[in-house]
């Protein structure tokens, strides 16, 4: 029973941790640059979850004020993550632009092949 209780209380944290280590694994283990950026995105979304999920109150409503509503969930993490998402896509675009340039000058987006080519020249 205690295990079940812990699971219900911390399931969001555990899924968040799983997403985070998957993102970490992709970034470290995979040599493909686009795949690395996808992994970075996974890590980023897990951080969104880390911020948003403690702000929820069970039985609460979205923080838009009105008569007879409440309790409201915490609006502060929403604000922080809202801007983080848009900044995230801007930085993703920057990373993809770098990938495109790397592909143009090396002819590949695999890390190992780029290193091999660097050693040759």
């Amino acid at each position: 029973m205690a295990i079940l209780e812990q699971t219900v209380a911390h399931y969001n944290h555990w899924v968040m941790i799983f997403l985070m280590i998957s993102g970490l694994y992709i970034v470290v283990a995979r040599g493909n640059m686009v795949k690395k950026l996808v992994g970075l995105g996974l890590f980023q979304t897990s951080v969104y979850l880390l911020y948003i999920s403690p702000g929820k109150i069970l039985g609460g409503t979205p923080p838009i004020l009105g008569e007879g509503l409440g309790p409201y969930s915490n609006p502060l993490p929403h604000v922080l993550i809202l801007t983080a998402i848009v900044v995230g896509v801007a930085t993703l675009a920057l990373g993809l632009a770098l990938v495109v340039r790397i592909n143009e000058s090396f002819g590949t987006i695999e890390e190992d092949e780029i290193f091999a080519e660097e050693d040759d020249t």
Binding site: I64, L82, I85, V89
Partner: peptide
């Protein structure tokens, strides 16, 4: 101001 939304979402 009154519902979900704002400059970021509308811009995207």
């Amino acid at each position: 101001d009154f519902g979900p939304g704002g400059g970021f979402q509308a811009g995207v």
